[in-house]
Design a protein around this nucleic acid. Sequence first.
DNA 1: AGGTTCCGGGG
DNA 2: GTGTACGGAACCT
Length: 595
Amino acid sequence: MEKNVVILDIDYVTYENKPVIRLFSKDKDKNIVLLDDSFEPYLYVAPKDNVKKCQEQILDTLEGVHIEEVIKKDFQVEKTFLKVTFLNPQELAKNRDALRDLDQVDHIREHDIPFYRRYLIDRDVIPMTEVKACGEKIDSFLNLDSKKHDLEIIKLTKPLERVGDDLQDFRILSFDLEVRNPHGMPNSEVDEIIMIGVASNFGINQVISTKTNSEDRDDFVNQVASEKEMIETFIDIVKKSNVDIIVGYNSDNFDFPYLKDRAKSHGIDLDLGMDDSNIKFIRRGFANAASFKGLIHVDLYLVMRRYMTLERYTLERVYYELFGEEKVDVPGEHIWEYWDSDSTQLDDLFDYSLDDVVSTLKIAQQTLPLNLELTRIVGQPLFDLSRMATGQQAEWFLVKEAYFDNEVVPNKPGGSNFTIRAAEEDNEGGYVKEPEIGLHENLVQFDFRSLYPSIIISKNISPDMLVVGDVENREDYNISPEHDLKFKKNPKGFIPSVISKILNERFKIKKAMKASVDPTEKKTLDVQQQAIKRLANTMYGIYGFPRFRWYSYECAKAITSWGRQYIKRAMKKAEDYGFYAIYADTDGFYAKYKK
DNA sequence: AGGTTCCGGGG
DNA sequence: GTGTACGGAACCT
């Protein structure tokens, strides 16, 4: 059978010792899980000097691996690697260290790319877009049961085909808890949930509670008998509404952990997964992320911290910044008093609860389009992408581009490598001329368009083009104004070529945007070009950040040193025409016309 | 100057 | 989950 579906989420399970990729998807009216058992985990081995000997040693040491000799580019230089394929990801993880330590092995590469990400990259599958699936329908697979979970299960017989890059419409639901907290920040062991606010882009706007508001107020309260029933009602709404994306504000760290604890105390499972599986908290560094199979949870707090620069990121502050309106406010420490009061204060608390969840939905509608575009460009799941720093988004984008360029990805710096990188002096940044104090008139503003991306492209600044030591023909190199850093003029470096590619794409989109007469299309194109701009601007940052795969202190230094040269030159030139700069920063300045 | 601890959001 | 992890301000020594 053939079917067009939209992919929401991905994971894998191990079945009979083999990995099976599961793509949680949907079509117009049904949830669909695609199964693909045709993909195997692998890594690359760089042999020391003798490829054959290395291959023999690996085969002698490890059981059940398959080895293939491949030519891959490493910083643009073609080299022979051994592609070592394992039975399953667990085997790869278990044997990675032993492999690295073999005396015929120089080093290993691409050994730390999560299996589902590898699948998305290698199979060119883009989350949140439409694909054509060919396969056979099956009734069940492991814990998945098509009847019990009301979904279709399709075992793929052919690779997925891209149908189009068009972004789909998604069903978005926001939620928010209010808790009775007589002693400061609530404690889920003792403090009950008093309200659950729910809003959606498909008509739901309500507050579930054990109390209700006055008759003269708008009727948005869904009154139930107990806290247990509140939680059950919430779960029921989410499940019945076929939600694609569930959003909250700080829901990774507050709402979902709290809801889970309270549900547990009533013997309820927070089983919102497409397969009725439970909520799962994924440890990501210092914080947790709340996740469900096939239901994308986006915590907008994390998204907003990247989306705009503010001194604080409270829901109130972010909402004000985006929409210029004040929110209904109830001071946190008084919530329990409002709840206990049974008067207009209780009504106000209901209004506050609804306002919070409606604002959260509005913020989601405002910001998700950009994140969906980034998902499409970066090629990783929205759940992951919404929690990545922009530098990580850029890095995963480069990992994907490297695959299509037949480049082996550099390893992440580990241990001593990282310490060396981190110990390097801070790079001198852009040129800043402190503003001259006073009220100035007759000012002109001047700025470079994408200064750093342009420098990277025009000077071919890329770690694979950097040459250390003396060179014969200096004219074959772009040489930085300070530090004598030399970059080959040819061929085009990996990162400059990626940036030119996406900037060309942006140029085309901007052109189409100007030509378009349909306001919806215009808006969509605008979001697309913004997403690309963000990604292009991040590329400078990745050179200067010690944890990145393409980290290069030299590249970072070269970019800023050319940057300083360009802006100073421009200021000088402006002065020749009678413009005196009163303030400058990195890629632009304000100047006063003296005449 | 250099190292260590604390904090964000949420109620 | 092919796990190991932020970044700036405030506060010590």
